[in-house]
Simulated assay, not measured.
Amino acid sequence: MSSCNRTVSELSETYVNPLRNYKFSCQLIDSTDVRAALPALEKEFGSFVDCPDVYRPKLLAALSFYPELKGIRITIVQKPLKTSMAARPANYAFARNKRRYNIYVDDITDKVTDFRRYPYSAQIGCFVHELGHVAYYEQRSNARLTYDGLSYVSRQKYRSHYEELADHNSLSHGGGYYGYMYRNYTLNEAGISKKYRLFKRANYYTGKKLLELHNEQRTERGLSPCQPPLADSAKVFRPTLPIK
């Protein structure tokens, strides 16, 4: 039995996802809904998460899309990165239930890609993507993770494939719309440099592709497609100010 399947059985019998209405949704995630859901999310996931308060509600909201990750120890580490986030195994324990994972968050201020300036739903979408990596790691042996790591740093094609795997995990778990919002904001709203834009396009699906794939998931469930944002994105996105 895989590690992820093991953790599903650990969910409280009475647990009902308080943010279930956002799965496979076209709605912006309301921060007041997340605040109301925090007691239930803390009960299920909180003891396994080491996370600064500034990110904790958003990480827990993202975990609501991955109930099988209960019991998986995740630490948020703040450090400079070339991108907004990166998820990595923190150890290679032979027993999978002993594994831990770090999600590195770039929170250096005065950058156009300052993650804390992103819209609330887009921030959650980035965590949803990184948890897609964690869900993938949980299904792989130590040998496979070592191979993946070496391939990721040495082969461009494999790097793109690796990021797409995380996106497909987020899509299949119902969080694709929020990954789309993050990717769309980065490429179309954040004022990123040409170099960073080329990096994003070389390694990740575009926002347009993510929305297309999310709509495929909705169609399979008998739901109507989500529409792209209005031309005036300020009517859709509500960027938050950086938190000091």
Rank of each mutant, 00 (worst) to 15 (best):
R99N: 10
A95E: 12
G175R: 00
V112D: 10
A190F: 10
S141E: 00
G191W: 10
T186E: 13
E138H: 12
R155L: 14
R88G: 04
Y180I: 00
Y120D: 15
D106A: 08
S151I: 03
K194N: 10
Y178E: 03
R183A: 10
V153H: 05
S170C: 11
K200I: 00
K111W: 09
H133V: 03
R201A: 01
V105Q: 07
F199M: 11
Q123K: 08
R140L: 13
V134G: 02
S154C: 15
G149A: 11
G176S: 14
Y136T: 03
E130G: 07
D106Y: 12
I192P: 01
L171K: 06
A143L: 11
R117W: 03
E163T: 04
R197F: 01
N102D: 12
V128C: 06
A93V: 05
A190M: 11
K98M: 05
V134D: 04
Y92Q: 05
A166Q: 01
F127K: 01
R155Y: 15
N184K: 14
N188H: 01
N188I: 00
L145D: 03
Y180H: 02
K195G: 05
Y104A: 10
L150F: 09
S141Y: 03
N142M: 15
Y120L: 14
H161N: 10
G174L: 12
T186I: 11
A122L: 06
H173N: 08
F199K: 12
R144F: 13
Y182Q: 08
S121W: 10
Y101I: 06
Q156S: 09
T186L: 15
K111N: 11
T109Y: 10
Y120W: 15
A190E: 07
M181W: 02
S172R: 08
L165W: 11
Y162V: 07
Y136D: 06
L165S: 13
N169L: 09
L145A: 09
S121R: 07
A122R: 04
S193E: 00
A95M: 11
E164F: 14
H161M: 05
N188V: 01
N97Y: 14
F127R: 05
G125D: 14
G174V: 06
S121E: 09
G176C: 15
